[in-house]
């Protein structure tokens, strides 16, 4: 199992869910496990150069109380989700691919994406690279 990659289908574009995905990826990278991340829809939108550092909001269940707690964590020094991912990418083997269908739907060109994104692929290539590893949908 340790040789199989961790595969994350990242769909959500809110900061809490992006941070959760970045944490899962970092942990796997720290254990020496390869990570594949497939960006769909709102997660892909969040990786646009002009959006990545923007305020992307939280999942609806956060509510006002959750938003306050997340703000406090950030003020206490918790790094943003994209910084977590950048550190993890330096540490281990994390391949981040944009879903080609989502690129079409959202009218995003490859040059619009942050350098964290390694390329564009379809779902078949994602499954091929996923091998027998776990697939998380976030």
């Amino acid at each position: 199992m340790d040789d199989e990659p961790l595969n994350i289908v990242l769909f959500s574009g809110t900061e809490d869910r992006l941070q959760a995905a970045a944490v899962m990826a970092s942990g796997a990278a720290a254990l020496g496990r390869k990570v594949n991340i497939f960006l769909q829809y709102w997660a892909l939108d969040a990786f646009r150069k002009d959006r990545i550092s923007a305020s992307l909001g939280l999942a609806p269940e956060a509510g006002e109380r959750g938003a306050t707690l997340v703000r406090e964590a950030a003020a206490a020094g918790q790094q943003p989700w994209h910084a977590t991912l950048r550190v993890a990418k330096e540490l281990g083997e994390i391949d981040i691919q944009a879903c080609s269908l989502s690129m079409d739907v959202l009218k995003i060109e490859e040059q619009d994406l942050d350098a964290l994104v390694d390329g564009v692929e379809g779902v078949t290539a994602f499954y091929l690279n996923a091998g027998d590893g776990h697939i998380l949908f976030i």
Partner: peptide, 14 residues
């Protein structure tokens, strides 16, 4: 110290 999960492990691995 003061870093939240997974940063202590990430920094250790680095």
């Amino acid at each position: 110290k003061g870093l939240s999960c997974p940063m202590p492990i990430v920094k250790t691995a680095q």
